[in-house]
Design a protein around this nucleic acid. Structure first.
Length: 112
DNA sequence: TTGTTGACTCTGA
DNA sequence: CTCAGAGCCAACA
C-alpha cells in the first residue's frame, strides 16, 4: 500500500478547508469526495490537525448541518462561538442552513 | 500482519 | 420527523 501518498491526502483536505471563505461551511462528505476519501477519513485528518494551524477546521461540519467536535463534546461550544464570529446564524436546534452557508467548491479539476 | 476505533454518511424502519 | 444498522477509509496498538 502507498506510504507516502497519505501525506498529500491530509494536505488536500487542509487546502480545501482553507479555500472556504469566512461565513461559509462545508461537510465531511463533500470534502471526502473532493479528496477521494470517505467522510470518516476527513474527520480523522482534522482530528490530527495540530493546534495553531492555519486550517479553519471550525468551518467543517457534518451533513446534518450540526456542529461536530469529538464525542467528548467539550470543544463543540468553541466551534459554535467561532462560527458565530464568522457571522453565521444557527437554527433553534443549533443547526446551520447548508443551503445558505454550504460552500461550493465549484469545478473539481477542469478549468480552475 | 490483523483488529479496534473514530470530528461521518446513507438507507431502512 | 427520529432511531437503528451497515459501510466507509485511515491511524494506532
Amino acid at each position: 500500500m502507498p506510504r507516502r501518498t497519505l501525506q498529500p491526502l491530509y494536505q488536500q483536505i487542509y487546502e480545501r478547508v482553507q479555500q472556504v471563505q469566512p461565513g461559509y461551511v462545508t461537510t465531511y462528505g463533500q470534502l471526502g469526495k473532493l479528496v477521494g476519501c470517505s467522510a470518516r477519513t476527513v474527520g480523522f485528518a482534522l482530528a490530527a490537525l495540530p493546534p495553531g494551524s492555519d486550517v479553519p477546521w471550525q468551518r467543517v461540519i457534518n451533513a446534518q448541518g450540526k456542529v461536530s467536535f469529538r464525542r467528548d463534546g467539550e470543544g463543540n461550544l468553541l466551534q459554535y462561538e467561532l462560527l458565530l464570529a464568522e457571522g453565521l446564524c444557527f437554527a433553534a436546534d443549533q443547526r446551520l442552513d447548508l443551503q445558505r452557508y454550504g460552500w461550493d467548491f465549484g469545478p473539481p479539476v477542469l478549468l480552475t
